[in-house]
Nucleic acid binder design. Structure first.
Length: 370
RNA sequence: GCUGGAGUCGUCUAGUGGCAAUGACAAGAGACUGUAAAUCUCUCGCGCUUCGCGCUUCGUAGGUUCGAGUCCUACCUCCAGCA
């Protein structure tokens, strides 16, 4: 069983430590999205330097390239990528939702590789097998997202996710029985915006022999507080909860942590960075805008990341306008550091008992018009 | 000097009788939340009461024509070849 120590809790929020075979994660924590076993534009060393504690890779992408067998041959995700810290894998379930030409049946999902057209079938069992080969510390159950936000579709997807969860748990324990190193499984709570479905899903997942929970199918912070207030009290307190895919907007992190989420992952910070949209304490700015051409001040004076300590806005503007690779590197360092540090700060303020004050001042400054 | 070719939005470019005029780049702005994203979208002659209307544009000046970036004449500039 994955060990999760809760150091302090306050209502739903908690501060803890997840002990994985590759090291500890001090929670709440932001997990870097390393879909193809790399955080785009960043080296693992840069990730360590900006304060990241864990990364999350994607099973779907890794079975397409380089293949789960190869990652296993390399010694697993941590060895292969030289991350050497705690790792997560997402199951590939999300891709079933987002790819065209996917045929979903009760058995699993059939799809073609977007790279070379090869045909694949992913099932709860195959996702577990591939995730064990990839060898992350924490695996996500193979789930299905709803095809629309209608109640009927949400309910159907949730119920299938539950049936698949049973198969994931069985396969996971079968694989665990002969494993040299423990790996852990998180169930995924579905249900969309429907609180009755969320409660039903949380209840179902809570009853399973899993090590933690992913909360999936969340797309905006609107209503997320009520959803988490429905879900988290149902989930066992002593197991970690990962809020899947949320964290592009700082408010997601505050609402998530406040309402019982321990880890987050999101592609938003690095994707936005590559597109020139950079976080500051006063909101996001697009560094490509002409108004930064002569701005020789640091991107964010309060920030101690490599980008902000050493470079100015006019230089970043220039790098983006000339499409230099370094633009994306520096921007990614900053944005990833920003969200990682923000969650780390949330942790400190939860420990100090000053979370509400921190939340109010941070969000008041970041979103001045709301 | 002669012969041939060419001059179209900041740049390159499409366009051989019905066009405010193609495409690319540049420029300006927006989007992005378990990454088919180093991606995508919009604007890009001027002015308005902007699902439309008006004005001015394709080196310059004339001409032919209902209508000219497109045809004719002259001139200017550039390029190539020959002197």
């Amino acid at each position: 069983m994955l060990i999760f120590d809760i150091i302090k809790s306050n209502n739903l929020a908690r501060v803890g430590v997840i002990h994985t075979p590759h090291g500890d994660i001090e929670t709440p924590a932001f997990v870097g999205a390393a879909t193809r076993a790399t955080v785009k534009a960043l080296t693992m060393e840069q990730m360590r330097m900006l304060g990241s504690q864990a990364i999350l890779a994607n099973t779907y992408h890794l079975i397409l390239a380089p293949g789960a067998d190869l990652v296993q041959e390399a010694g697993g995700l941590a060895e292969f990528s030289s991350w050497h810290g705690p790792t997560f894998t997402d199951s590939g379930g999300f891709q079933i939702f987002s790819l065209p030409d996917v045929k979903i049946s009760e058995n699993g999902a059939k799809f073609k590789s977007h790279i070379d057209g090869r045909k694949f079938e992913m099932t709860p069992e195959s996702s577990m097998q591939d995730q064990w080969k990839i060898g992350a510390d924490i695996h996500m159950a193979f789930d299905q997202l709803a095809k629309s936000e209608k109640y009927g579709d949400m309910k159907e997807a949730m119920e299938r996710t539950h049936r698949w969860l049973d198969r994931c748990v069985d396969e996971h324990h079968r694989l665990a029985s002969s494993a040299e190193r423990m790996q852990y499984l998180f169930a995924i709570v579905q249900g969309g915006d429907f609180l009755d479905l969320r409660a039903e899903s949380a209840k179902y997942c809570a009853g399973k022999d899993v090590d933690g929970f992913g909360i999936g199918g969340v797309f905006t912070a609107d209503g997320m507080d009520k959803m988490l207030q429905t879900v988290c009290p149902i989930l066992p307190e002593d197991k970690p909860r990962h809020l899947l895919g949320m964290g592009q907007e700082p408010i997601d992190l505050f609402v998530g942590a406040e309402n019982g989420c321990d880890t987050f992952d999101c592609v938003g910070p690095t994707r936005m960075a590559r597109n020139g949209s950079l976080y500051t304490l006063d909101g996001r700015i697009n560094i490509k805008n002409a108004r930064f051409k002569h701005d020789f001040t640091p991107l964010m004076p309060e920030c101690d990341c490599e980008c902000c300590k050493n470079y100015n806005r006019a230089y970043l503007h220039h790098l983006f306008k000339t499409d230099e690779i370094t633009a994306k590197v520096l921007a990614s360092i900053h944005n990833e550091h920003f969200v990682t540090k923000t969650v780390a700060n949330i942790r400190e303020h939860l420990l100090a008992g000053t979370f509400q004050e921190y939340k109010k001042s941070f969000l008041g400054r970041y979103y001045p018009n709301s």
